[in-house]
Structure formats: C-alpha cells, structure tokens
C-alpha cells in the first residue's frame, strides 16, 4: 500500500455541490459584460505551460507542429508560469515533483486552469501502486479537465482543449476559484502527500 491514505470523506457531497452549481449556471448567466468579453478572449487564446513529467510529453510536439497544429486554435506554449493560462500535467507525479507543480500553479495568474493528461493523473495509471507517486491529481490541484488515455493521441489532446475552450467561454469553469475557496482542504491533502514540505509563496 502507499505510505499515506487520501482524504475523501466529503467527496460525494462536494461533487453534488459542484453539479448543483453547474446546473444553476445553465439557468442564469450572471457574468458581467466585461467578464463575458474576457472569457471570450480567454477561450480563444490559451497559453499553456506543459509540465512534462512522464512519457506524455512525447505526444505534445506532434500536436504543436505541422501535422496537428494546435496553434490554429490559439493555443501555444509559453516559457514561464507567469505567462501561462493552463498548466498541463503530462504524466505521473512523484511526490517531489508535486511540490514543484504546486509552486508553479500558485505562481500562475488567474484565471488559470489545470489539465490532467493521461491515466497517471487520473488514477495513477501503471504507477497505481507506487510508493512515491500520487494517484489522483485533483486532490492536490483543482483539475478542470482530464484527458484520459495512456497516452492520449494528439486528436484527443485537441479535443480536450476544445472542451476546455467551451467550458471557458460558457463561464462554468471554476477550478481556480474552487482552489481559493477550499484552499484548506487542498492544503491538507498536499501536506499529507508531501509530509508537510509544501512551499507556497504567499
């Protein structure tokens, strides 16, 4: 067994709450005019920071270059978290790496999104019984979207991004707000996984 257990006591309840929120969103769009414009632009321009931890990275170059060309959707790579909109976790996360990912995520500017990439971020994938990796990313960071597969093909990646775009422009993407709202819960999980060695800048 892994050296730690996960916090899932009130998960079902939270899921219900989230679903409720989503349903409410569909009824009334309470975004302001400016927010709508911002979301519209945000959906069409996504700077991504790909955190290439595992084998997932190998699927990104073909997605970016001439065969699949993700730039035609306004998606492009960026060098630092300050500039990026979406954090792409492409593979398994060892506990040590998680620490860096959390710091990177906190350095990003809101609105910011997290995409889990491949089965490793979903349930551990082939590392499901590893002592040193985490199994579920959304316990530590507010994952907005998973792309399942081992590895997901470029088509899947582009589909995932298009889904993300839809979510952004309809305004029902709440991950970073959720991270701020339930910060204690995330921090507790992070602390547990990292044995208290979380470093954040604020």
């Amino acid at each position: 067994m892994p050296g730690y257990s996960l916090h899932r006591e009130n998960e079902d309840q939270l899921l219900d709450e989230l679903m409720q929120q989503v349903r409410n969103k569909e009824k009334i769009d309470e975004r302001s005019m400016w927010q709508k414009i911002a979301d519209w632009a945000q959906a069409r321009s996504i700077y991504m920071l790909h955190y290439c931890t595992g084998c997932g990275a190998i699927e990104l170059p073909p997605t970016m270059t001439s065969r699949f060309d993700m730039e035609r959707f306004g998606i492009g790579p960026m060098a630092t978290p300050r500039q990026a909109d979406v954090l792409l976790i492409t593979g398994y996360l060892a506990a040590k790496t998680l620490r860096r990912v959390i710091l990177t995520y906190e350095q990003m500017q809101t609105p910011k999104f997290v995409m889990g990439f491949g089965s490793c971020t979903l349930n551990g994938g082939i590392y499901y019984d590893s002592y040193s990796t985490i199994q579920r990313l959304d316990l530590y960071l507010p994952v907005d979207l998973y792309i399942a597969g081992c590895m997901p093909r470029p088509e899947a990646i582009i589909m995932g991004f298009n889904r993300l775009k839809q979510m952004i422009s309809s305004g029902d993407i709440q991950g970073w707000k959720d991270y701020e709202k339930r910060h204690d819960w995330y921090r507790k999980n992070q602390d547990k996984a990292l044995k208290g060695e979380v470093y954040v800048t604020r």
């Binding site: 414009i37 911002a38 632009a41 945000q42 909109d85």
Partner: peptide, 8 residues
Amino acid sequence: IDTIKLFA
C-alpha cells in the same frame, strides 16, 4: 485576442 486576454 491574445492582447485582450492578457489585459483581462
């Protein structure tokens, strides 16, 4: 679009 997004 990129510029509008960045300012937002």
